[in-house]
Amino acid sequence: MALVLDSPEINRALKRIAHEIIERNKGIENVVLIGIPTRGALLSARLAKILAELEGSSIEHGTLDTTMYRDDLRGSAPRSLGRTEIPAGGIHDREVVLVDDVLFSGRTIRAALDALAEHGRPRSVQLAVLIDRGHRELPIRADFVGKNVPTNRAERVSVRLLEIDGNDEVRIEGRA
């Protein structure tokens, strides 16, 4: 149960990602954050708060459930659905930043891109993740990464967030 990030480190990572988002998009005027339930949505709400404080203006954020777009539904028990809430301003012609907790195979992000396309055509789609653990099965990469964590496939990355888990930390489980 190796500790990867503790609470202050998670905060610092999010702040750095926020700065990078501002830098890349030259402000946040046309940026909309879309979090992937469950923990990606919580991280996106935190990022929105940090960005609003840094820039002194509000930023729209929403959630996008990818379950119904997954290509790996068969062969496992049905997953329960998360919430999709596209902000009032929509995503058409906006700079969309997808936010998730862990980037692994890339299949969730592929599903998210399909789901996103149903809601409009963003000017660009960028990806922010707290942890990139490698082992991609698709040509997908993150634009903003909290921490790169080399893992083997059998390990499990556990992200706990204050809002639902009672504390903030990232651990690797099952490491020999």
Binding site: D65, M68, Y69, S80, L81, G82, T84, I86, E118, H119
Partner: peptide, 23 residues
């Protein structure tokens, strides 16, 4: 309750312009 909760999320999706899911 799981069927009802799932239906609730699906109802929200079908209220948007997206009426079709590839599932």
């Amino acid at each position: 309750l799981n069927i009802l909760d799932t239906a609730e999320e699906l109802a929200r999706v079908t209220e948007t312009p997206v009426k079709k899911l590839p599932t």
